[in-house]
Write a protein that binds this DNA or RNA. Sequence first.
DNA 1: ACAATCCCGACTGGAATGATAGGAAAGCAT
DNA 2: ATGCTTTCCTATCATTCCAGTCGGGATTGT
Lengths: 148, 148
Amino acid sequence: MFHFSSRSLYALRALYELALCEQGPPMKIAFIAQRQKIPTRFLEGILAQLKRGGIVESRRGVEGGYHLARRSQYLTIGEVLRFLEGPVDFTNSQKKGKKDSISGPTDPFNGLWQKLEKTVETAIDEMTFRDLIEFNERTGQYIPNYII
Amino acid sequence: MFHFSSRSLYALRALYELALCEQGPPMKIAFIAQRQKIPTRFLEGILAQLKRGGIVESRRGVEGGYHLARRSQYLTIGEVLRFLEGPVDFTNSQKKGKKDSISGPTDPFNGLWQKLEKTVETAIDEMTFRDLIEFNERTGQYIPNYII
DNA sequence: ACAATCCCGACTGGAATGATAGGAAAGCAT
DNA sequence: ATGCTTTCCTATCATTCCAGTCGGGATTGT
């Protein structure tokens, strides 16, 4: 229940990688893909999408690559997830057709869904990539191991 | 993001309907389907599944129908959702193949996922169908309109 | 010119989803 | 027993989504 798509999970990890080296030169797709074990061509498409969403920027050519469009303390997990997966919504409203969803205003579960939505949104919106890096540095759960 | 399947939403609403009349005679599929605007044959399958999960019981024949297997104050939303949609899990572990999921123990997002999982689980596990009925009676958001 | 790198759109195989259909089995009345 | 009602089981189907691949085009620095 509640699974994210691989696409979103890959995107978050790629952005984390970019955040780790945000003051360095642009980072190449192939490099990110190798470090995070993401299929290269798949990651290409994901990063292109993130670029269209204004989350990353890129340069082409021999010294090209990707970098964050903003600094990591201003980029939240929630913003990325919302961009990739649409708004938080536990009911079944379809993405395209704005027709009536299964649950309407008289749905007895509306209160519960709204409470859940708010809880989750708060959690993912107050967590920035910088927070994540700091947290993992402190707990040592994730070792960057960068030799540059 | 986080949509439930129609199946689960239908199931919850059907159970809500059963809970509203839990002291009455068994309720027929066709009746529930009509009240909650659920395709009848689809609801058949859903209720059969809920029966196999020990959530409802049934009787066949002319006075047959469904009723809750337990009283509504002992049936939580969480139990139903977990039965239909599997355990709460924000990472991408596949249901069948227990192979390695995309995120491992060194995933920098593990802490966030675990926090979210716990929050959501708590919310859906402490809400029973009786709670729902009482809440909706108080706020008047949902009018049963039963004429029996 | 050339090589590195990002960029774009099409495509595919598999799985999940949202149903629908035929008929079997069970319960009850007569 | 017969027949009616209702649940129960299995199969099928169309559509959509998902993960991943592919070929080739556009940019950039040297």
